[in-house]
């Protein structure tokens, strides 16, 4: 489970490859097609956002990649392996809308959790947790408990935890959804910095158009019923590391926001799917 060099070798290729992935759920009300015929490649180190109206299958796609669900049909490979293999090899780190910290563990203990479960020696765990806490700017809170932290701080701990095993892929489902606008923008900048440092590929689910535009190399616009990829928009806003807050006032930024918005409206005939 340690981050071996083999992932780096495959990293030059694709992080995620989905080939006509379809997912249906058998519910009491009949069969729900959450995803139909979704094909998508995410290159190693690339930041890809999924955006689309509620219920279009963004979370489902993310959960398929994470091997929390299995595709009904189609092929899914992560760094050339099956999703299950990639999960067992700890190739990805995951963060959800809720931080989901264990309340009985300290902040450091929460970050150490995946390392502990995979038998990393104590000294090494400690060192990694300290390092990650610095990275997310919570160095002085290591001994606190989750209930003593603000929502934004908890979310940063969750991100640090997702990074603990140096995954080459980060899966994030609306990680900043519960945060206020200020914290949110701050976290976005932080995330870009972290990504530039770790060189991880990111699949990022969001409802916010500006967030998707600011963060991504490519934005995947999805449409509902059944969930499909409507359009993939390249952002061309500079390298991850070069992006900073002033980009938010850049005319190119607004152009891209408009492009994503128009694509969303085109894909959602009902007129829903507007960002918040």
């Amino acid at each position: 489970m340690t981050t071996t060099m083999t992932t780096d070798a495959t990293a030059t290729r694709v992080a995620v490859r989905a080939a006509s992935v379809t997912k249906t759920f058998d519910t009491r009300g009949g069969i729900v097609t959450a995803l139909q015929d979704v094909s998508l490649d995410v290159a190693a180190g690339e930041f890809v956002s999924l955006i689309g109206p509620s219920g279009c299958g963004k979370s489902t796609l993310l959960r398929l990649i994470a091997d929390l669900e299995t595709p009904t049909s189609g092929e899914l490979s992560i760094f050339g392996k099956t999703a299950e293999r990639a999960r067992l090899d700890q190739d990805y780190g995951i963060a959800f809308q809720q931080a989901g910290l264990l309340p009985w563990r300290t902040i450091a203990g929460n970050i150490e959790l995946p390392l502990e479960l995979h038998g990393v020696p104590k000294a090494e765990r400690r060192a990694r947790a300290t390092e990650l806490l610095e990275l997310v700017g919570l160095g002085d809170l290591a001994g606190r408990f989750p209930d003593q932290l603000s929502g934004g701080q908890q979310q940063r701990v969750a991100i640090a935890r997702a990074l603990a095993e140096r995954p080459s892929l980060l899966l994030m489902d609306e990680p900043f959804g519960a945060l206020d606008e200020m914290t949110r923008e701050y976290m976005q900048t932080e995330l870009l910095r972290i990504c530039a440092e770790t060189q991880a590929a990111v699949v990022f689910v969001t409802h916010s158009i500006p967030e998707a535009v600011f963060l991504s190399d490519r934005v995947v616009v999805m449409s509902p019923r059944p969930g499909r990829i409507a359009e993939v928009l390249p952002m061309r806003l500079g390298a991850t590391s070069g992006r900073a807050d002033d980009l938010r006032e850049d005319p190119r930024f607004f152009e891209m926001v408009t492009a994503v918005r128009e694509s969303l409206h085109g894909g959602a005939p009902s007129g829903r799917g507007e960002d918040r």
């Binding site: 994470a66 091997d67 929390l68 999960r87 067992l88 700890q90 990805y92 995951i94 959800f96 809720q98 989901g100 264990l102 959790l113 995946p114 479960l117 995979h118």
Partner: peptide, 11 residues
């Protein structure tokens, strides 16, 4: 959420 987190750790 927690159960899935542990599943993602392959535990």
């Amino acid at each position: 959420l927690h159960a899935e987190l542990f599943r993602s750790y392959g535990v």
